[in-house]
Design a protein around this nucleic acid. Structure first.
Length: 486
RNA sequence: GGCCCCAUCGUCUAACGGUUAGGACAACGGGUUUUCAAUCCGUUAACGGGAGUUCAACUCUCCCUGGGGCUGCCA
């Protein structure tokens, strides 16, 4: 199937849009089809510089690379590929004009000269009378001569769709099922703006037809404009694509997910350290379920398991807690080597010595099961690269039954036990053996020995275990840190 | 206001007429453990309401209620 993702370059890629793109991409992959990226830059006023680039880069970063349409070349320049271009709507203005003219000629659309002010007054009046705000067709009733004269006089105008009032529009949506709309409740939508740009409605119909798109999946907010699109397809003599309207993603208060109440830019989540795997896994599960109890899905597993039939109708709240859980799951699934290469630059930036550290892999693997985000890594490994500040208050821990006055004695005992381990034998096994025999002979509890040791070595309330840290710190440094506190 | 859509634990969801209404996140409790994580086990927690169809409704129909979306020369 040919599917598409048609963002408007008015802002950074939105998480809701990413989910829609993901589903479109999955359908394309599953059907060995094509995933098209088209840029809907028809609103000159709202366009944001850099948005297109952000959208493409983000899609690529999470692994949803478009097969056709707009992409970035090797130099990072925005360009296009594919047989149905151009893929920027602003480069297709002639096309929209052509089809608008066709509709005009067929009496299926009409020019409208109404000013924004008049329309505004009209709507206010309609509202006052508790009527649905809809265009009153003033310009539809103009004589052909008047229309001709005003256009020739260069008067600004738009082209409106002449919706058949008596028609009942029925459609079977892939997600929502049978939908019915009455023609008289559908407004005479503007198709072509006075600046010559099309509105979404015309552009969508023309492009998805010309680009031979099989499946249009888009947010539920488009459901109420569906009849306009179906009428357009009919007027133009084309077969409409299959539509799959996706349930909305919601704020915790169940309104449509918005910038005001949530972080919505995919870029923000990636910058915070969320893994693409976690983000995509999370988004896939918002509104879709596999029908099994599997929760963790790689992109390939999603291709395998995905189907539109299992997409939900109701909106889904964007639940950060579940995202965080998935993030943790994916963090732990990363192969150790890859984990190292991901965190190393971050750690080296703060501690240059880590760059040449032969033990980096082992040290890094200590934190992999406790880390949630990559940027936490430098801090979690800091004590390997700088002398920690160790306070007596940290070592003296009531919960571990360690009294302040006993600290020097305890540290001395540890010092002595570890000094007994030879340089050559310094391994986690040897350290464990030495300390366990100390625990046995001293009659102290494990925590009374291991907490002070760990605290003295790391200076932290929590960290990986004492045995592990001592092993990877080396004998010399371990002894030195013990001595420094005592 | 009008049109359209939706409705199972707090959240994401399973159930396609017959189940002790299942799972996951969160919360809570516990095991493991030198700490924090991780991990394991357990607990609390839902069919919005009312009619109807049926031997039997979470599942089908209707009404109500509630929520949402749209109602722009935005997408």
């Amino acid at each position: 199937m040919r599917t598409r993702f048609p963002p408007s370059p008015t802002g950074l890629l939105h998480v809701g849009a990413l989910r829609t793109a993901l589903f479109a991409w999955l359908v394309a992959r599953k059907t060995k089809g094509t995933f098209i990226l088209r840029i809907e830059d028809t609103d000159q006023a709202r366009e944001m510089a850099g948005a297109t680039e952000n959208i493409i880069r983000t899609l690529v970063a999470v692994g949803l690379k478009p097969d056709e349409g707009v992409h970035l070349d090797q130099n990072g320049e925005i360009c296009e590929r594919g047989p149905f271009g151009p893929y920027h709507q602003s480069d297709r203005l002639d096309l929209y004009r052509q089809y608008a003219d066709q509709l005009l000629a067929g009496g299926q659309a009409y020019p409208c000269f109404c000013t924004a002010e008049r329309l505004d007054l009209m709507r206010k009046d309609q509202e006052k009378r508790r009527q649905a705000p809809m265009y009153d067709r003033t310009c539809c009733n103009l004589s052909p001569e008047e229309v001709k004269n005003r256009i020739e006089a260069g008067e600004k105008h738009v082209i409106r769709l002449k919706v058949p009032r008596e028609e009942i529009i029925v459609y079977d949506d892939l997600i929502y099922g049978s939908l019915t709309f009455k023609g008289h409740t559908v407004d005479d939508q503007v198709l072509l703006k006075s600046d010559g740009f099309p509105t979404y409605h015309l552009a969508h119909v023309v492009d998805d037809h010309l680009m031979k798109v099989d499946l249009v999946n888009r947010g539920e907010e488009w459901l109420s404009s569906l009849p306009k699109h179906l009428i357009l397809f009919k007027f133009l003599g084309w077969t409409p694509p299959q539509y799959a309207h996706m349930p909305l993603i919601l704020n915790p208060d169940r309104t449509k997910l918005s910038k005001r109440k949530n972080s919505v830019a995919v870029t923000d989540y990636l910058a915070k350290g969320y893994l693409p795997e976690a983000l995509l896994n999370f988004l896939a599960l918002l509104g879709w379920n596999p029908g099994t109890e599997q929760e963790l899905f790689s992109l390939n597993e999603l291709i395998e398991a995905f189907s539109l039939e299992r997409v939900q109708k109701a909106g889904a709240v964007f639940d950060l807690q579940k995202l965080d859980w998935l993030q943790g799951q994916w963090m732990r699934k990363i192969p150790p080597q890859e984990f190292v290469s991901r965190i190393k630059p971050l750690v080296v930036e703060k501690f240059p010595a880590a760059g040449t550290d032969p033990k980096f892999l082992e040290r890094a693997s200590l934190i992999q099961e406790r880390i949630t985000f990559f940027p936490e890594a430098p801090d979690m490994l800091s004590y390997f690269y700088e002398i920690p500040n160790v306070s007596l208050d940290l070592i003296a821990n009531p919960k571990q039954k360690i009294a302040r006055e006993d600290v020097p004695k305890i540290l001395a005992m540890i010092h002595e036990a570890l000094s007994g381990v030879s340089d050559a034998d310094w391994s986690q096994t040897a350290i464990t053996t030495a300390l366990e025999s100390l625990i046995a002979s001293s009659g102290m509890k494990k925590g009374q020995i291991l907490w002070p040791l760990r605290a003295a070595l790391t200076g932290r309330e929590y960290s990986p275990g004492a045995y592990e840290v001592a092993t990877l710190l080396g004998k010399e440094e371990t002894i030195r840190r013990l001595a420094a506190v005592a």
